[in-house]
Design a protein around this nucleic acid. Structure first.
Length: 249
DNA sequence: GTTGAGCGTT
């Protein structure tokens, strides 16, 4: 537990980040710290976890104080069996802000001023793209892909749950969960109950009161002629097409 | 309770 609460990134300016992949989902930073600390001075160990479930994503970041120790840890811990899983230790390739990292050390990709114009600050607009890329990869990580080898089953089940909720066709279940969590912020992660929100019977998302246009309005002076005066067959044959009559409900 | 390519937090 190196950072739980409000301890952000300590200092990565003089540290070397190692990426540990293929770790168990229940492996915590405390389990990796003593293991990596054996080979050098570990500044901090961070394991990205899911914001919804809070579980580990299966990889961790270990920051060493010196590069030689980090290199040693990579060669020594790479391929080690941790918690029954063969972990893969390697130098981090990208930084927290998607900076280029060489040998675990952050090498700024900013163009060299070389006395050209030191006052000019580069404005890398890659923040947007980098975060977008991360989100896409993150949501692509589904915990159920091998089980649903048949896409039709997966799609059918997904549609079954969202058939009446939202037909926006979002291929992600994050939408529904995100909205549901957003609407009830008082719920905590550990206190999250799997209970579904009670369906609102009086749910009327589109309270359209007056129609935007009435073709019959102004023609006869009355938009709703008496039923006994006008037969439904006559109205349907005039204003409604037989093919679109099924849409009326 | 499940899963398994990849690159990170106040």
């Amino acid at each position: 537990m190196s950072h739980f609460g409000r301890s952000g990134p300590p200092d990565i300016r003089d540290t070397y980040s190692l990426l540990v992949l293929n770790i168990s989902f229940r492996t915590t930073a405390d389990d990796l710290f003593p293991l990596f600390d054996r080979y050098g001075k570990v500044v901090d160990v961070f394991i990205p976890r899911d914001r919804r479930t809070g579980e580990s994503r299966g990889f961790a970041f270990v920051r060493y104080k010196y590069a030689d120790e980090a290199q040693k840890a990579v060669e020594r811990l790479d391929g080690r069996n941790v918690d029954g899983r063969n972990i893969m230790v390697q130098f981090a390739k990208y930084g927290p802000n998607a900076e280029r990292i060489h040998k675990g050390r952050i090498v700024e990709v900013i163009p060299k001023t070389k006395g050209r114009s030191r006052s000019r600050s580069p404005r890398p607009s890659r923040y947007r793209d980098s975060y977008r890329d991360r989100d896409q990869r993150r949501r692509s990580r589904s915990r159920s892909r091998g089980r649903y080898e048949n896409d039709k089953y997966y799609d059918r089940e997904r549609d079954y749950r969202h058939r009446s909720r939202s037909r926006s066709g979002s291929p992600d279940y994050y939408r529904g969960r995100g909205r549901d969590d957003r609407r009830s912020r008082s719920v905590s992660y550990d206190s999250a109950s799997p209970v579904r929100r009670s369906p609102s019977p009086g749910r009327s998302p589109t309270p359209r009161r007056t129609p935007p246009s009435s073709p019959e309005k102004g023609s006869h002076g009355a938009r709703s002629p008496p039923s006994k005066s006008a037969s439904p067959q006559g109205r349907r044959a005039v204003s409604r097409s037989p093919s679109r009559s099924s849409n009326e409900d």
